[in-house]
Design a binder for these strands. Structure first.
Lengths: 264, 264
DNA sequence: GGGGCGAGTCCCGCTGAACGGGACGCGGCC
DNA sequence: GGCCGCGTCCCGTTCAGCGGGACTCGCCCC
């Protein structure tokens, strides 16, 4: 009826179900069926029926009158190749960097024009950053994003308008290019309160065995409490170590990966 | 037609789609459409149509003629509450235990009668265990499983038949109860090559602020190379530290969780 | 070189699963 | 008491999903 802009889910059952599941990405914790109706503007009975289905198959779990993503989703999510191999190789080194500095340390990859945080070790003190594992953030306003963009060549399409988050956010295309040049020369990217006021960060790119950039190691904290200009070497070191491990591991790990490729 | 035992997916589109997604849990990496047809015994055209749908909404990604779970699944999986809060609290301490011992260190929770591995730090040397983050394993044949079972009271239903993995696997119900008593007294559980020959482990339970068991911290390695009887204190210490952090954090974290409960 | 096989793609008529408007009951709040 | 929002259930309609099957394209083996 109303030609309303359906978020994107089209009219298939799978699309609608995915719309529902997506609601749980940001909203930590559980949601009531009524909240889902509001957020998706799907008809009430559709949501209730669908949610019951999702519980039956294990994608959602029921918690009183609320619903939450099921452990099955975690299991499948851990099997996603784009993150699995990288995290496997990186986790140990990220932990080391974290323990050596006690700062917030993370790993992020680029998806579209946004970074997705694959791993995150939080500093003990300091305010809990809103960033969390599995979270997204626009690439132009993050150290990790800039670190990856700088080495991505022209394969990434920059959106027409770059949203502003603080007064320091880079929203001009030319300015962004200048910044990326700088990152390319230095090998590290800085976030100077461009995403969140009072929060700064450093990031360095991680490369695959073929030389293509895969992700970025980052470190962040409260301006004044963390000195990013003294941390860049540490971040770069960790990023390079991971890159080397990936190159070394290829010869060992890949055969195993290839082995059980097929069904039956 | 053939009354074949449909795995469980029933006849809804969501059920079928979930059946497809589940295929990616164990089979690391990507699968071809044909492999999916074989594994699910769904009609060819159904699989092809459905897989195209799943790609459209982002649950799968296409990789040549193969398909792999999409990064979206990782994002939603990270939002699963059952694992999120626990991992947040545990990660730092697991990393410490790992760095202190250089052994394989993990965190697992119980789902049904199986443990699901939430986190896993791998030892540098030693054979790569088949266990991986997001993986499942029957509870009676794992140190973590026994550690959680021992403190779960009678809330968990023990299956009629306990599958055997090695000659040491506990497959007798009475014997399992004796073992769980022992675990309850000691506060730690041991895996004496009960899951995989030559592999041993220790695990200790993690408790929530209300005293209910939530998960288990575990350590494992090759028999002879790791001395589990000398590691149990370390594992218990880490488990207790996490339990305490959870209790402390409740007052801080919960308000935030409650806050944005609702939509709109 | 030809023919068999398994892969991926496309088509299309049929049908019942999904759809969604709406009635109902419950509980909390004004 | 009356209103409102929530969860549940019902049921007639219809169109999205279904799946058999035809087609093509490589590849391998005879």
């Amino acid at each position: 009826m109303s030609p309303a802009h359906r978020s994107e889910g089209e009219i298939t059952a799978i699309g609608r179900a995915t719309d529902l599941l997506k609601q749980f990405r940001e909203s930590r914790g559980s949601l009531s069926a009524a909240a889902l109706v509001r957020r998706t503007d799907l008809p009430k009975s559709t949501v209730y029926r669908m949610v019951a289905d999702l519980v039956r198959v294990g994608l959602l779990e029921r918690d009183g009158d609320d619903y939450r993503p099921g452990i099955l989703l975690f299991e499948i999510g851990e099997a996603v190749p784009r993150q699995r191999d990288l995290r496997d190789a990186a986790k140990r080194h990220l932990a080391t960097l974290h323990q050596a500095t006690l700062e917030n340390v993370g790993l992020a990859l680029l998806d579209g024009f946004e970074v997705v945080h694959l791993e995150m070790f939080r500093g003990r003190e300091g305010p809990r950053l809103p960033q969390h594992t599995g979270g997204r953030w626009p690439a132009h306003a993050s150290a990790s994003g800039k670190a990856v963009l700088a080495f991505s060549g022209d394969t990434v399409e920059v959106p027409a308008v770059l949203p502003r988050f603080t007064e320091r956010t880079i929203v001009d295309h030319a300015e962004l290019q200048v910044e990326l040049d700088r990152v390319r020369r230095r090998g590290v990217a800085f976030d100077r309160q461009e995403a969140i006021a009072m929060i700064v960060g450093v990031a360095a790119p991680v490369f695959g065995p073929d030389g293509a950039v895969l992700a970025a190691v980052s470190m962040s904290g409260v301006a004044g409490r963390i000195d990013t200009s003294r941390m860049d070497a540490a971040v770069r070191t960790t990023a390079l170590t991971i890159s080397q491990d990936l190159a070394d591991a290829r010869s060992v790990v890949r055969p195993v990966l290839q082995a059980r490729r097929d069904g039956r």
